[in-house]
């Protein structure tokens, strides 16, 4: 459903993505890891058009993202995104955060949108806080609301951009538990993270990136037990020592 073919991206002279070839299938949970500056977040952000590519083709749900006549909004309706810093709307309550796009973009009936939102908030264990504002919630709670907000659009894939990197350690597990639940329910997920526990438990494959390239793309457990590339070995060693 998502296919990168020879994708390149530059920031001025800086070659951020080098000849990326990747494909993601429906129902798959792919975990993208790599040192900072490796291009993993950039790659992820290309999928919903937050970053433009310079050449190659990127197909999302059979639509060429780079074509001039492509309406990015119609793609984004089907591609949810969860950010490192949650990016909840601070001027809206939890329930309003979740229902805003379904009501305004999908033109759902507000009552129906509210019911769906409550179901999703229950799923992420945040229903009891539905009338709170983001500033009254912990990071982990905000991130769970952000996941519900992404799910409310009923996307075909959910992108996670380091969803636990900005969280206090004690709230990380609550977020990971929700993500694992989604993975087991068959949600298509592409997750940029350093959480190797999550990768091993529910990841179908691990994509290791470095210096703008995909270095390894293999089964999660295989990769974890026996990374081929020396950079992957070194990186894995570092993050495991920290954990």
């Amino acid at each position: 459903m998502i296919e990168f073919k020879n994708v390149n991206k530059y920031y001025g002279d800086y070659h951020a993505l080098k000849n990326i070839n990747l494909s993601f299938k429906k129902g798959e949970v792919a975990v993208v890891i790599g040192p900072s500056g490796s291009g993993k977040s950039t790659m992820l952000r290309c999928i919903n058009g937050l970053e433009d590519i310079n050449d190659g083709t990127l197909m999302v749900n059979n639509i060429d993202l780079h074509a001039n006549d492509t309406n990015l909004n119609s793609i984004r309706k089907n591609v949810g995104m969860v950010f490192q810093h949650f990016n909840l709307y601070p001027h809206m309550s939890v329930i309003e955060n979740v229902t805003l796009a379904p009501i305004k973009v999908l033109k759902q009936d507000p009552e129906k949108a509210r019911q769906t939102a409550e179901k999703l908030l229950k799923k992420v264990n945040m229903l009891d806080r539905k009338d709170h504002y983001p500033s009254q919630l912990s990071g982990g709670q905000q991130q769970r609301v952000a996941i519900a907000r992404g799910l409310a659009m009923n996307p075909s894939v959910l992108l996670f951009d380091e969803p636990t990197s900005a969280l206090d350690p004690e709230t990380i597990d609550d977020v990971l538990d929700v993500m694992k639940k989604l993975a087991r329910e068959g949600m298509t997920m592409i997750v940029v993270t350093h959480e190797m526990g999550f990768a091993r438990e529910v990841g179908d494959r691990i994509i290791f990136m470095a210096e703008g390239q995909v270095i390894e793309d293999r089964d999660a457990v295989e990769f974890y037990e026996n990374p081929h590339d020396p950079r992957a070995k070194q990186f894995l060693g570092k993050i495991i020592h920290h954990a």
Binding site: N48, G49, L50, L72, N73, S74, R76, K77, V79, G80, M81, F83, N87, L88, Y89, L100, A101, K104, V105, L106, R149, G150, M153
Partner: peptide, 10 residues
């Protein structure tokens, strides 16, 4: 905030 809005289809 702009990115969050855009990524939900606004």
């Amino acid at each position: 905030q702009m990115e969050a809005g855009l990524s939900t289809g606004f």
